[in-house]
């Protein structure tokens, strides 16, 4: 059995998360990934915004920063630029990262700054009680979409890819082994990396959309997941309502802080 306790602030338990919330599975996968990488706790800096998922930073024994709604990436950018030795991981929700924080999200990816984002996508604003989010699928209900969402949803992995991220992977909490692997790879990656995790919110989303028990929601993930390799040969109609999982981007691009260091070194030589 993996010893999670070594990374947890157990005196801050119980967690605020509802029973059946997917976020705990992400937390555990993340800790296993960090452990495999052998990262010293003092060198790990975890930054979050505001939301249920963002409360994670209070429970893990790293340098932790719980910022303002949507702004985690801006604080994280400051930390990484000021101290590139720190591993910087951002924990954020779909609303936090892509609604209020959307601008920072695309710019962090564009800069390709060496930050790992673990984005808990539950299709809803959990913390504030189930309002519609930029990732709520069309037709699904939220407290502020009582007749079903009439807007189009974001493909947030695609957004990071288009903006210039070095590594993008999508996973579900059903496949926690895969999730752990992706997080490990994302932290290892020099550059902006995103792991989008579909994490069910039975309380604010599932109940309202009659998706059954937390277990039903996770089984639904299992039944509807399609690996990227397979999805490539499928038509958009066939992919309707499916979850495309796997590594979507894994590439090498110049990283922001490294490039800045080159500038510093270059100016030093000139002197």
């Amino acid at each position: 059995m993996f010893n999670y306790d070594q990374y947890l602030r157990l005196n801050k338990f119980p967690l605020i998360w509802c029973s059946g919330c997917g976020d705990g599975i992400v937390l555990k996968s993340m800790l296993r990934a960090i452990h495999k990488l052998g990262i010293n706790k003092d060198e790990m800096c975890m930054v979050s915004g505001i939301g249920c998922s963002s409360r994670l930073t209070g429970y893990v024994d790293f340098n932790t920063l719980h910022t303002t709604h949507g702004r985690a990436l801006t604080f994280a950018t400051g930390i990484k630029m000021a101290n590139p030795k720190l591993h910087v991981v951002v924990v954020t929700g779909d609303g936090d990262a892509t609604a209020i924080g959307g601008n920072h999200y695309i710019h962090a990816a564009r800069r390709n700054i060496d930050i790992t984002v673990i984005l808990f996508n539950n299709f809803i604003y959990g913390m504030t009680g189930g309002q519609v989010s930029p990732t709520t699928p069309k037709g699904k209900r939220a407290s502020t979409a009582p007749y079903g969402n009439f807007e189009n949803a974001f493909n947030i992995s695609g957004l990071a890819q288009a903006a210039g991220a070095s590594y993008v992977a999508r996973a579900t909490v059903y496949n926690a082994v895969q999730l752990e692997k992706y997080i490990q790879r994302a932290i290892e990656k020099k550059g902006f990396s995103l792991v989008e995790v579909l994490s069910p919110c039975p309380t604010a989303y599932g109940r309202r959309n009659r998706e059954g028990t937390p277990v039903d929601m996770i089984l639904h993930q299992k039944e509807n997941s399609i690996p990227v390799s397979k999805a490539e040969s499928m038509t958009p109609e066939e992919l309707e309502g499916k979850i495309i999982t796997g590594v979507l981007v894994d590439t090498e691009r110049p990283e922001c802080r490294t490039e800045y260091q080159r500038l510093i070194d270059h100016l030093k030589e000139e002197k």
Binding site: R71, L73, T74, F75, G78, H107, I264, L267, K268
Partner: peptide, 27 residues
């Protein structure tokens, strides 16, 4: 950059103050 310090132009002012708080927390 000449003295090893960090200069970064951010995407807006909200990001700018976020970044400086992060920089300060990093010492």
């Amino acid at each position: 950059p000449k003295i090893g310090g960090v200069f970064i132009q951010m995407e807006d002012e909200i990001a700018s103050i976020g970044a400086i708080i992060g920089g300060s927390l990093a010492g």
